[in-house]
Design a protein around this nucleic acid. Structure first.
Lengths: 196, 196
DNA sequence: ATCGTCATGTAACGTGTTACATGATTGT
DNA sequence: ACAATCATGTAACACGTTACATGACGAT
């Protein structure tokens, strides 16, 4: 069991895990979700079904066949405790990542699955950590660009500039996200207090 | 020959093509460039050397062995006319792409290799086209978000928001790039006029 | 009767990843 | 003498892509 925990999953696998984690789904369901824009994951049966099979084999998810219409079976997958553990670990994992290697999209996927997995307080803390990590990465980056601004060819300069803008955007997003999450949390608290 | 032209290359292959296109390089050179941050391409010998071999086989690049120190050969690759054609085509290709499927990084790589491949005028025109394409994609996207703002769960909303911010950032970058390129062009014109 | 959607799968293929392997040259 | 860097490669493996294949169900 612990062996499984050490294996890193692909983004597609985490995506599937996250989707199934919120509610049981079939392969077809997952394909539909993935087709609806929003991510690069291309949702072909040739990737989804094999992924589901190996995840089932690794006990991350469990499938049960519903014989709805007799002939063709329909397999609905739900997440297992092991799957929950892995997903939780991934979602919470401290991001040494963002800005270095991990792309923003991976980060977003992770954020998406914090829903119902982290408490509002934990989430705000998580976002704070992100902001600090980005900040730490931003400063030397900016200095680097400033230094080479005059020597590098203009095309290279502009590519670096884009990188910087991307980082700044990410920083800004974290701020906005924190504010919104915070506001949402307040709203919930108030409505709960009123009920009592 | 024309068969080769129809085959789509990977980003790594275009990267290699672009790098070799500006000056002849060895596999090791390419690995060094790719290691120095900036892109997700991970620059391991297990990807570079096989790529070089198949590109040579496909006549996109041509390698010549320099027997510098007798024993271990050192192979320097240069771009072929076919390679030039493909690179040129890729770099210039109208971007139906950005915002839809192609990631920003691919776009940036493409931009990087416009250097010495497009005239300043062509480049400005290219950037204009980009801006329009982004704009066209931006408006319906924004409307979509506006529409679902109230109904969707907050996490989903924020992910969409991030997508939008990314697009806006790209738009902003295009503007900056055009201005800078334009300024650079003017400078060159002036210095050339002065020479005469 | 036929078309689109629901639904699941497989097979070939290509490419990137990781890890291993070798050896020359240069600097200390 | 030894370490770091230059320099090239291979082999196993895993994953995603494309294309193909099947068939039930509901609507027109």
């Amino acid at each position: 069991m612990i062996d499984e925990l050490s294996r890193e999953l692909t983004l597609l696998e985490y995506m599937i895990l996250g989707l199934i984690g919120s509610e049981p789904r079939t392969g077809y369901d997952i394909m539909s979700v993935l087709e609806g824009d929003a991510h690069r994951l291309s949702a072909s049966p040739g990737s989804i079904y094999p992924a589901l099979k190996r995840m089932e084999k690794n006990k991350l998810i469990a499938g049960q066949v519903e014989v709805v219409h007799e002939t063709r079976p329909r397999k609905t997958y739900s997440i297992t405790p092991l799957g929950e553990t892995l997903l939780d670990r991934w979602v919470r994992s401290p991001l040494p990542v963002i800005g270095y290697r991990e792309e923003f999209e991976v980060f977003m996927t992770r954020f998406l699955f914090t829903a119902n997995r982290l408490t509002p307080n934990e989430l705000i803390e998580w976002l704070d950590t992100c902001e600090k990590a980005i900040e730490q990465y931003n400063v030397p980056r900016r200095n680097f660009l400033e230094m080479l601004r005059s020597t590098a060819p203009i095309h290279q300069q502009l590519v670096w500039e884009a990188k910087l803008m991307e980082l700044n955007m990410q920083r800004e997003w974290v701020k906005i996200a924190r504010e919104r999450i915070h506001a949402e949390y307040q709203k919930q608290l108030i409505s709960e207090t009123n009920k009592q």
